[in-house]
Amino acid sequence: MRTLYLKALFVLSAFGLLVGCANQQQPYDYTAFRESKPTSIVILPPVNKSPDVKATYSVLSQLTYPLAEAGYYVLPVALVDETFKENGLLNPEDMQAAPPAKLREIFGADAAMYVEVSRYGSTYAIISSETVVTASAKLVDLRSGKLLWQGAASASTAEQQQNSGGGLIGLLITAAVNQIANSITDKGHEIAGITSLRLLSVGRPNGLLSGPHSPNYGHDPIAGR
Rank of each mutant, 00 (worst) to 15 (best):
E159S: 14
T64Y: 11
Y120D: 07
M95F: 11
G165A: 02
P100Y: 07
A158F: 04
L148H: 06
N91D: 15
A153I: 00
Q96V: 00
V115Q: 07
E69V: 03
G151L: 01
K138M: 03
L147K: 05
N163V: 05
Q160N: 14
A155V: 02
W149S: 04
L142F: 01
Y73T: 15
A98P: 11
P100A: 15
D141G: 07
L148M: 08
Y124T: 04
Q161Y: 13
I169L: 09
K138T: 01
D52Y: 04
L147N: 12
F107N: 10
T174V: 04
A155I: 02
S156T: 00
A158D: 10
V80F: 12
V74M: 06
Q150D: 14
L147D: 14
N87T: 00
A137C: 06
S118Y: 01
V115N: 09
G108Q: 13
L90G: 10
K102A: 14
R104E: 12
Q150T: 07
G145C: 02
K146D: 14
P66R: 00
A109L: 06
A70E: 07
V80T: 12
V80R: 06
E82P: 10
D81I: 00
E69Y: 12
Y124K: 05
A125S: 15
A135T: 07
S61Y: 02
A135E: 06
L90W: 15
L139M: 07
V59T: 15
G71C: 06
G71N: 02
T157K: 01
R104W: 07
E86L: 11
L90Q: 11
A112M: 05
I106A: 09
K54Q: 14
N91F: 14
A155C: 09
L103K: 00
V117T: 05
V77E: 15
S164L: 11
S122A: 09
L67I: 00
I173N: 11
L63H: 06
A175Q: 13
G88E: 07
P99M: 03
T56C: 13
S156L: 01
R104P: 13
S122P: 08
W149C: 01
A112S: 11
V59A: 14
